[in-house]
Design a protein around this nucleic acid. Sequence first.
DNA 1: CCGTATCCAAGAGGATACTG
DNA 2: CAGTATCCTCTTGGATACGG
Lengths: 146, 146
Amino acid sequence: MTTRTAAERRAEARTAHRARFADCPTNRLLDRLGDKWVALVLKELSDGPRRHGELNRAIAGASQKMLTETLRRLERDGLLNRTVTAAVPVRVTYDLTPLGRGLLPVLAAVTRWAEENSGRIDAARREYDESGARDAVRAGSGGTGQ
Amino acid sequence: MTTRTAAERRAEARTAHRARFADCPTNRLLDRLGDKWVALVLKELSDGPRRHGELNRAIAGASQKMLTETLRRLERDGLLNRTVTAAVPVRVTYDLTPLGRGLLPVLAAVTRWAEENSGRIDAARREYDESGARDAVRAGSGGTGQ
DNA sequence: CCGTATCCAAGAGGATACTG
DNA sequence: CAGTATCCTCTTGGATACGG
C-alpha cells in the first residue's frame, strides 16, 4: 500500500520543508534579529563595551530576565564576549566580537531603509484600514482557473 | 507627596521606553521580518507575481492560515498588491509594490551575511555548549565596582 | 481556488523575589 | 552588581473544517 492520501503527502511535504527552513541561514538570522531586544543590545554595544547595569539602564524597557537571556544567546552565537572581573561587587562587561561587529553594517542597512520608508508604510496602513481594501477587482474573462 | 519609590520610577521608565520602542522604525521592520514566513514570501515574489496556490506550494511549510495572514500584513504595509480576478474559480495574484521591491536589497544583505557567517555561528555554539562557558575570568584588583 | 473560523499547544516575554 | 528561579499572561503559529 504505497498509496498515500493527498493529506498524507501534504503533511510529508510540510515536514520536509520545515526541516530545510530551520537550517536556512537567513531565517536563523532573522529569527535572532527578530528577538525583541537584540537590535537594541547590538546598537548599544556598537559604541564599545558596556557593563550589565549600563545596558539595563540604557534598555530600560527590557526586563532583567530578557536582557540576560538575550545576552546569553548572543554570546552563544559568538556575537559578543562576556567578561567577568572578580571584584567586590563583581564586574561583568559585554562587548562585540569581530563577528558581531560584522553584523552592524547589515543592521545599519535595515535601519536606513526603515527610517526612510516608515512614513510610506504608515500611509499604506491608513489607506488600507480606511478603504477596506475594496480595490483592484479586474473583471476576468473566465479562463481555465488552472 | 511627589516622593515615588525607586520601583515606581523604574516602572515609569519601562513604560516610557516601551512606547518609544514600539514606534521605532527599525524595530517595527525587524518585527515584520521576524514573522516566520515573511522572508520566504518576499523572496518568492521577487521573481514576479505569484498566485496564492503557487505560493502555497512553494512555501509548503506554512499553513494556509499563516500564509494568508502573512500576505495580508504585507499588503496592509504597502509591500505587495493583491489582485483578484473575477473568474470561476477566482484567481488571486500577489506582486511586490515598488516599496516592497525596495526592501529586497536589504533582505539580500541579510542573506549574504547569514550565508557567509552561519558556519562561524555554528562553531561558536559548539564551543559554547561544550566548554560550558567557563572562560575569561580575569582577576580584578578589587576596584570600586562603581 | 481562495479564504475564513475555531480550537489548541507551545513559547516568548514579563513581574517579582531571592542568592552570591 | 549580576544573575537565577518561579509563576503567569498573551501572542504565535498550526490543525482542521467549513463557505463563497
